[in-house]
Design a protein around this nucleic acid. Sequence first.
DNA 1: TAATTATAAATGCAATTGCATTGACATTCA
DNA 2: TGAATGTCAATGCAATTGCATTTATAATTA
Lengths: 144, 144
Amino acid sequence: MSSPDQSTVTTWAKLLRAHTKAFASVEAALKAAQMPTLAWYDVLLELERSDKDGVRPFELQAELLLPQYGMSRLLDRMERAGYVRRVSCSDDGRGQSLFITPAGIEIRKKMWTIYGPAIQKAIGDKLSPPDIRKLADMLAALLE
Amino acid sequence: MSSPDQSTVTTWAKLLRAHTKAFASVEAALKAAQMPTLAWYDVLLELERSDKDGVRPFELQAELLLPQYGMSRLLDRMERAGYVRRVSCSDDGRGQSLFITPAGIEIRKKMWTIYGPAIQKAIGDKLSPPDIRKLADMLAALLE
DNA sequence: TAATTATAAATGCAATTGCATTGACATTCA
DNA sequence: TGAATGTCAATGCAATTGCATTTATAATTA
């Protein structure tokens, strides 16, 4: 219930701005290269990592912090684009399993050629290696 | 053009997640209290701070990092809600000056009673005071 | 096991956002 | 000056998002 002190407010403000700036620069780089957005990348990467038996949409929602309907519609678009396959689930009649397609694997790789350097520019070039690790630790503390 | 190393990617990922989590928790608190969003707060605060001769929409866009049409429509809604006034500009026939209304001042104050404690919970309670200051400095480095 | 409750995913509709363009002035400079 | 260019702000239209609800199936429990 207590009010934040000045340094807390400052940190909050800088978190918002740093995120907005970094995020916008990365999204802009992808858009300039006519590629899908970061949300698509996240889905593709998750699917690629656990390709074996597929991933359930509700797991992906939880992992990527999207609302249920948001994930449902994101998958609509990605399926239409040919990057994911939805297969109805054998052991749960309500659900489905998701798989990445070859085209999905390919576009994720292509995206990384833009995404990686954009991250480097937004983060890697701005801080020393020790500070980068320290920043990660502090941000991690916000996640607990 | 170069690829980021592992620690840079980790920091990027944590920046996204920390922002998403903190932002969502604060927005949720405001919504639970039936109050406007953070974007409204930002506009109200800017207007309150420079109440003297008003603020131009294009200045506000730049400050708040919103697209031009986004600001135009945000102001539509805030004007309809009675929180801001748009006055056509005497010295520039293309534009207008923005002013906060008494109702706007009031709602901003009310919002802070929710917003402040929500920031405290999301940031202030998670790190020691020295770390909070250090985090601000590192995030500031990302803004340069 | 039948009824109740919970979970997975989709969807209708309204609100918001993004994109491209327009309208109205200002500024520049030939 | 006045034609060309630049800037401020609004807007039509399509895409996306948010909310509430629905449909379908699972899990629980009386």
